[in-house]
Amino acid sequence: MEKNQTILLVEDDVINRVALCRFLSKQGYAVHPAKDGDEALENYNKKVFDLIIMDLVMPGIDGAETAKRMRFIFNSTSSDYPPIIIITAVDHRAQNLEKIFRAGVDRVVQKPIDHAQLLKCIDELLSQSKHHQ
Results as ranks from 00 to 15, higher is better:
Ile52Lys: 05
Gln133Val: 05
Ile113Glu: 00
Pro33Cys: 12
Thr66Ala: 15
Thr66Ser: 15
Gly104Val: 07
Lys130Leu: 14
Asp91Asn: 14
Asp91Cys: 03
Ser25Cys: 03
Asn16Met: 04
Glu65Cys: 02
His132Thr: 09
Ile113Ala: 04
Ile15Asn: 11
Ser76Asp: 13
Ala116Glu: 09
Ala19Gln: 08
Asp114Leu: 05
Asn75Arg: 13
Phe23Cys: 04
Gln133Arg: 10
Ile87Phe: 05
Ile122Ser: 12
Thr77Lys: 14
Gln133Glu: 06
Lys35Thr: 02
Asp12Gly: 06
Leu118Asp: 03
Asn16Leu: 02
Leu118Phe: 04
Ile100Lys: 05
Asp114Asn: 15
Val108Pro: 00
Tyr44Ile: 07
Thr88Phe: 10
Ile7Pro: 11
His131Val: 15
Ile61Pro: 02
Ile61Asp: 07
Asp38Gly: 12
Gly37Val: 09
Asp91Lys: 14
His131Met: 13
Ala67Met: 06
Pro82Tyr: 05
Cys21Asp: 02
Gln27Thr: 02
Leu125His: 01
Gly28Lys: 12
Ser78Trp: 04
Ile15Glu: 09
Ile53Pro: 10
Leu56Thr: 04
Val108Phe: 03
Glu98Phe: 07
Lys99Asp: 03
Ser78Asn: 11
Lys68Gly: 07
Thr6Gly: 01
Ser127Tyr: 08
His131Trp: 06
Ser129Asp: 11
Gly37Thr: 10
Val109Arg: 00
Asp13Arg: 12
Arg93Phe: 12
Glu42Pro: 02
Ser78Phe: 03
Leu118Arg: 05
Lys47Asn: 08
Phe49Pro: 11
Val14Leu: 11
